[in-house]
Design a protein around this nucleic acid. Structure first.
Lengths: 168, 168
DNA sequence: AATGAAATCTGTTCGTG
DNA sequence: CACGAACAGATTTCATT
């Protein structure tokens, strides 16, 4: 967890490891080594560093919510007083359906992603959430993809000059 | 992947396995067995079935986007003609920043989650996306949590009667 | 369908170059 | 960082309940 020592920027090899482990988080160091042209001890060392520096935050099974009995997904935007904001309560067991909470800029205080078993379930959940503030919900009809692998950011310096830039 | 044979509903033990593997996707069958009070061969059999039925869709390393150099997250709502919808293009390499795409009910055609390295990066991305249709974006200030473990849906029959119910 | 034990196989780790 | 060997551990199979 600690960023012990120098925090080197991630190099190409690191990103290949990251890509591979996002595809299959159970790869052994041997298999991983073959993919990135490194020996097992070498990749083990790199993975250990990535874990220690927090770049790799953990490993988890991806559960298909539909097959797990939670076929409905919705986004809920919530505008509420900061003091009694949902953010404080969602860590607990009160809203297990809420799988994601973000604080937003703009008019809406926060963005929630929720997973429910049925329309009545969603209806009940929204009623419970609605007590915390003004609310706006969007039901997801279908999901093209989710949890797509994160890729290295562009090094392209043009990105910084994409906007026209202001001049006096 | 195939739902071969009877698709039994998930029992308590299945859900304990699912919970454990969402916490740590690299648990061995031995460790898993100790957590759910089952022998290694027994859990191996259950995990195999959960994988085959697609409940467990895969295993992946969770990457901290901030430490990976993508500190900015935003939600983008996009309204566009179905025929030239972004959905068709996002599978490719054109928009690696888009990590999530959902088709929505309501006025907006789709909901995107994007991860970028900087404000100029976001600006450029939104310009590219904007060519596909009317757009609305929300920058995430902070994320309380993400990828929270999915829990078993309530068996509570009251959920179905939460609404008053209509009568003639 | 699960247990327990045994056998095989694989991954991990350490020392050396 | 790669190589090679020794160790440790996991997965699988089988017979039994």
């Amino acid at each position: 967890m600690k960023t012990c020592g120098v925090n080197r920027p991630l190099d190409q090899t690191d990103w290949r490891i990251i890509a591979a482990l996002q595809e299959d988080g159970r790869l052994s160091f041997n298999q991983l080594g073959r993919r990135v042209n490194l020996s097992a001890p070498a990749v083990a060392e790199r993975v250990r560093r990535l874990e220690e520096s927090g770049v790799i935050a953990g490993y988890q099974a991806r559960i298909d919510p539909v097959r797990a009995g939670l076929p409905l997904t919705a986004f809920v935007q919530l505008r509420c007083a900061l003091t009694k904001c949902l953010l404080k309560t969602t860590n607990s067991d009160e809203f297990p359906e809420v799988v994601e909470v973000h604080k937003l800029s703009g008019n809406w205080c926060s963005m929630l992603k929720v997973r429910v078993a049925s329309m009545p379930h969603l209806e009940g959940l929204l009623e419970r959430i609605g007590t915390h503030g003004e609310m706006n919900s969007h039901v997801v009809l279908s999901t093209q993809y989710e949890g797509r692998a994160v890729e290295p950011p562009p090094t392209d310096p043009q990105l910084a000059s994409r906007s026209e830039g202001w001049r006096r």
